[in-house]
Write a protein that binds this DNA or RNA. Sequence first.
DNA 1: CATGATGTCTGACTTTAGTCAGATATCGGG
DNA 2: CCCGATATCTGACTAAAGTCAGACATCATG
Lengths: 290, 290
Amino acid sequence: MLDPVSRVRRFNRAVTSAVGALDTSFLGRGRPLGAARVLNAIGHGRSDVAEIRDYLGLDSGLMSRLLRSLEDEGLIETTAREDDARRRMAKLTRAGRREFAAYEALSNAQAEGFLAQNSQGEALLAAMDLIASALTRERVSLDEIDPQSEQARYCLGEYYAELSRRFKQGFDVSLSRDPDAKDMRRPRGTFLVAMSDTLPIGCVGLKGTDHGYAEIKRLWVAPAARGLRLGRRLMDAAESAARELGITLLRLDTNSALPEAAQLYRSTGWREIPRFNDDPYPDLFFEKRL
Amino acid sequence: MLDPVSRVRRFNRAVTSAVGALDTSFLGRGRPLGAARVLNAIGHGRSDVAEIRDYLGLDSGLMSRLLRSLEDEGLIETTAREDDARRRMAKLTRAGRREFAAYEALSNAQAEGFLAQNSQGEALLAAMDLIASALTRERVSLDEIDPQSEQARYCLGEYYAELSRRFKQGFDVSLSRDPDAKDMRRPRGTFLVAMSDTLPIGCVGLKGTDHGYAEIKRLWVAPAARGLRLGRRLMDAAESAARELGITLLRLDTNSALPEAAQLYRSTGWREIPRFNDDPYPDLFFEKRL
DNA sequence: CATGATGTCTGACTTTAGTCAGATATCGGG
DNA sequence: CCCGATATCTGACTAAAGTCAGACATCATG
């Protein structure tokens, strides 16, 4: 009863019945689960019919019928795509938005009920984050986003918070050389975020400079996503982006209070070099030629 | 994206697709999921047909048909119960045990695959334990068991391990007044274990003495189950058992290094009293009149 | 031992999910 | 504008799951 496999299986059983309960509550709205799932996918912003079909793993015939049943109910309307009339786009009508909101309310109520019953609070949420990240690790996508977008700011906030926990002297962004957002946009650089489902769980910035090299900045992986080799994936993607942009030399700075980062750099072809800036926080400097 | 409800919902989504994958793998054995579930319930020791039906939430007609299909396949045999011929018992045949073992192997392989892919090891397992306990909290049953049974020994082992972590001077059972097992069996006392699914997540002993009182011993709640008020439930059950046994005065000893325990006792009608034994570990003593 | 309650089984049915082979319309490229 | 590829839709089908009323045997109880 203590062996890891039994523990995983106990978790599976617990979670299976909880998930089943949520499905059942969805049936309460008088619509089969298949149709409810399609409606929710559309409500969550998926409009391309092929994409929904792929996401839900449905046969094209079945998908077509489900769409029609929702259309007959007056919940959605479909239109041909302007750039390709074979493809169809689905969107919610006013009634559809109301119905979608009702499903959202059910989901939220379930989640709130769970939280209200369990006083552990943050520990439980952290456990859920960890498991969700582990389960969706193959589905983590790396997206290029604007360094001032909401997701990017969330990542950076978490990153700064972690630095101030881990540096003995704390961390104050305003004392650090905060990169200018425009240096982390194409064509000078880029900013990548790792998205697990809808949650950002990691990021990295590529900052263009006028000194014949670009810099890697703000490499961060959420605590719940560590051990999944996400840091390596982010660095690989940043290097690819740098190559695309014609950059041939990369530099970065880091701090010895973050040993796992230095370990990653050393194991992926980075070479330690002398200090190349006057930022007060870093004490380790690396370079990599592409 | 940071609010608790979104985090719970992200977890739900992640877990829903993982559960679906396990179900799909079960279909590989050429039997509908419903029949596979019944077979597995029987394999896991549920033999009473009504109990299985209740556990799986099936209609009696459907259940009857599933049983017959398994019987036709030669995997189970059903017999009337001796004490009530209306009720039926199902048990696996030799072929059924083989087939059940194949399903077990699938489940184990899935769990092992998950563990192998995720290097976090113990952190991930602890997270799963925590969530499983939270999800099944309403289904935690308190069972009276023998203090020398496997479950009891597991709980006590965990309990001693926790004491040695939490006491500055460590903990050595052999120095403590280890209660005699026969004092924690009826009619002198009892031993209760809290079972979540098949995992023991807490225990308490009621130890009879010849001094006009009984003692509460070995109150333990697994770390993964804290915050669910399980300690209180165990204590309530132990007190009820004591009343049943005609005991009118309870005593217990504890240590100030376990403040949450003392807090529980104080808030449930226990009164601090002077030292009443010479055990080297406790430094706090309580009494409660029933 | 009559009676109502209980547990299981049977037959007849519906709904949901899923499959597959074509029909139809549109696309991109020669 | 023809042609193979692609996206969706339609019809015809099957399998699985679930529902419901009633049959039947057995039980507990007065």
